[in-house]
Write a protein that binds this DNA or RNA. Sequence first.
RNA 1: UGGCCGAUGGUGUAACGGUAGCACAGGCGACUUUGACUCGCCUAGUCAUGGUUCGAAUCCAUGUCGGCCAGCCA
Length: 602
Amino acid sequence: MSDTSTSPAAPVPTDFIREFVAADLATGRHRKIVTRFPPEPNGYLHIGHAKSICLNFGIGLENTGRCNLRMDDTNPAKEEVEYVDSIIADVHWLIDGWADGVLGLKLRGEGSATGTTDGELAAHHPAAVLPADAAGRALEPFFASDYFPQLHAFAVRLIRLGKAYVCDLSAEEMERYRGSPDRPAMDSPFRERTVAESLDLFARMTAGEYADGARTLRAKIDMASPNIWLRDPVLYRIRKIDHHQTGNRWCVYPMYDFAHCLSDYIEGVTHSICTLEFEVHRPLYDWILCNLDLPDPLPHQYEFARLSLGYTLMSKRKLLQLVTEKIVNGWSDPRLPTLSGLRRRGVTPQAIRDFAYNIGVTKHNALTDVAVLEKAIRDDLNRIAQRRLAVLRPLKVVLTNLGPDEVVECSATNNPEDPAAGTRKILLTREVYIETEDFLEVPPPKYFRLRPGGEVRLKYACIIRCDEVIKDAEGRVIELRCFADLTTRMGAENSGKKVKGTIHWVSVPQSVRAEVRLYDRLFTAAEPERDGRDFKTVLNPHSLEVLEAHLEGSLAEAVPEVRYQFERLGYFCVDPDSRPGALVLNRTIPLKDAWAKETAKG
RNA sequence: UGGCCGAUGGUGUAACGGUAGCACAGGCGACUUUGACUCGCCUAGUCAUGGUUCGAAUCCAUGUCGGCCAGCCA
């Protein structure tokens, strides 16, 4: 089995759903496992979807099965091709190199063939093609809309069986008739309509004879059921609007409950995994499949708890609001938990997969600490990111014993976690920048950076001593004059000399300027909507800070999506906003900072 | 006064009638040319009450708390 595994030491994950899968394999109920990831293309994917993707593709991968990507596009009013495209890109980004081998797609353009509407099963549905079998042919996701002809045929069959009827109740009337969880329902006056009449009416609905909302097709189940979803749920509604895949071909569209179970069935899905709120829909899922008298094996639905992460919002509706109200800059704003936002921020797919593995899969709602995500991000970046020196808030230091044009060559380790990454040259000059916070005139106890008369090591270079502090008219420190002890350079006679602090720096003439964007959590509260509060009351006004930083010269040719660790500062990656000579970097996440924690203690 | 689902350290999870374990967070220490990484140690838990059992986080009952369900959304 391919193993660019989720976590270095990770055994195969286990959870209650995987136990069902294993049991079904053991009993011979299924020989091949097929799952699916079925987003509605009405928004961008976020890290909550990533949890589902990792579960569904993980199960496919672990069992040499398959996981189909399917657009659950049964409501043209809310869906757009922009979302279809972003979903495809995000899924690939997240699974490539891991589970892309079990990604089930179909041949482009296949499946939207005509079907019958006379109650007979359409003969064909698109076959799932794995990348290994594509032979260079273009593939695309499955679409629930591909099955509209078959779905329609199934609906007709249900009417013929006396298990569905056309209802003329308005939406308001239907709401009244339905009752409520603790109040009984009333039968629709159209419930006992003859099969022939329903058949005729449904055909005319399909032909476009009636206005939106005028009639619906309903399942005839049990109006006395304590489960609302069994009180004759709507199966089809009239919607005279264009669909992003099927154009104006249809004016009746199936509801989620009708389309989903049958789409699963059509694709040969064995385990249909969704989130907890669909638990109450499961009896309906089963009812539809059973009452259509479909041959086995039938798919089964399993539910797990959706992800909720501290200090962020996960619902597509709320994310859409953040985007449309321009609280953030589009769906890929690095502060958003969208996959495109995380990608732009510099988070790796591996880190997201590790995160998904670490949080597990259960049936109870939990609030996951962002620290778990941050840990996964740092762990992966620590392994792969090359180190560079950069100064965010510069303080000029003049090394008084170096000549104006003197250049001292230093060797810097690219990645201490990966010796194969090698070394690079950096140049020490008379004028350098250090981080403003690395000098304090009157330092607190345990501060071991630079102070007047004190010593500190410039990383990869040498130890310097602060001889003089230059201030401006307001008394602010604007420059330090220091002595550079070149005998403490690597390889020199005093290279072993120890000082408490080592700080980062860049050469003034050798550095490049860049815009650096620092991100913080979008909200100041772990649960932005706690107790029904408006999330806009807890927006973090400092979630984005833009600085002009000075980077080591080797970064001049940095390209988007390459990730670096700026030593002692954090992980950064180049933003696509970058232009030649005008680099823009995003800070993915700062390094852990024990000193900041120490000082915060007061 | 409905139905369904759930409850294990601060947080997320494991244990499937037989030693409550792991991770994150937190604390202390070691190492360190990143106050990073790494390593060592520590803190801290079975919602409650009954019952079954030699033995219960696990099974049963009752209660408590939490989530979901009254779209022609998914």
